[in-house]
Amino acid sequence: MFNLFRNEWRKLWAKKSSWILLLIAVVFAGLTAWGMHGLGTGINSTVTSDSLSGASTGAKAFLTIFSSGSSLVSIFAIVMTAIIITEEFAKNTIKLLLTRPYNRHQILCSKFLAALAYLVVSLVVVYLVAILFTGAFWGFGGLNKVVDHGMNTWLYGLVTIAIYVLGNLFYLSVVFVLAAGMRSQGLAITFSILLEFVLSIVTQLLTVLMVNKQWWWIKWNPFNLMSYNPLVGNLKGMPAAASLSGWGWAIGLIIYIAVFYFIADYIFNRRDVSLS
């Protein structure tokens, strides 16, 4: 299984698109830092909680830079996930894979782990780039000060990475379902990217419905869990019945990720490779 994962990992980074997309995210984060510093604009702290209002300028700058780069990483991880699944059928290499001593469950699992690893590595790279630009423009001193929840900026950023990883894993599991059943690589990528934007609209509509109808159980829908950030907490004025906790958020997302992954596994295992 490890050899299969290593093979998928190498194949993923052998693609020029993997490097190009990561480079775009890094450049975008750098441009965000340069723009804020060069234009002398205020640091936007909307990506953080209100308790960060007293945080240092460097800390707020770091979080804004990291948020700008990680937003692209989320989209690019979706693209690469769709590619690594559909290309096996598009290039007809799935038949070669099946001649090796691996079953389809193992093949799909190795691709899921490779997609997860790509997401984590990309976020860590953006995290390091955000630190470097913050230090270059605003100094590293502010990063050592406590930001929120008793954490300094370094630790706060690492926890944010963990939150982004879990949240994006839900998207990736849904992409696995779409890609496992599609033959067109272009369609799989297009639908996967559109999915992220559509879900944001659905989340807002469901939130309005939940509050107006007082259907508090709607808070457990996966779209609402995706929009929740444990570090930021619940929205102001949100009724207690509609509020989420950090543990509830994490357990709920893990359950949804598992459900969609097993659906993708079911589709992938019953797909007819003779038509590839």
Rank of each mutant, 00 (worst) to 15 (best):
W217Y: 10
N152E: 03
Y164S: 05
K145E: 03
L231K: 08
K213C: 00
A240V: 11
T207Y: 04
Y156K: 06
T207Q: 12
A130G: 09
L155C: 00
V177K: 12
W154M: 05
L231E: 04
S200T: 12
L128H: 12
S173M: 06
N229I: 04
L205H: 04
I163P: 05
G150M: 10
G167M: 07
A136T: 10
K145P: 00
V146P: 00
P230L: 09
F170G: 07
T203A: 10
E196W: 09
V129W: 13
F176G: 02
W154Q: 00
I201V: 14
L172I: 14
I218Q: 12
W215Q: 15
V129Q: 15
L178C: 10
M210C: 02
T203H: 13
W154A: 04
N234A: 11
L178F: 15
S245E: 00
V211D: 10
A241H: 08
I193M: 09
E196N: 08
L194A: 14
G237T: 07
V208N: 12
I161P: 04
M182H: 10
Q214P: 01
Y156S: 05
H149A: 08
A241G: 03
F176Q: 07
W154N: 00
W220P: 01
N234M: 13
G150H: 05
V232T: 10
P239C: 13
N224L: 14
Y156P: 05
L132I: 15
T134H: 08
W220Y: 08
L155A: 08
K213Q: 10
T207G: 06
P222C: 02
P239V: 14
I131G: 06
K145Y: 04
L244G: 02
G246F: 10
V165H: 14
A162C: 12
L199N: 06
W216E: 01
I189C: 04
L235Q: 03
G135L: 01
F133L: 06
I218C: 05
M226F: 09
G141W: 15
M238F: 15
N152D: 07
V211W: 02
L158V: 12
W217A: 14
L158Q: 04
L178N: 12
V174F: 03
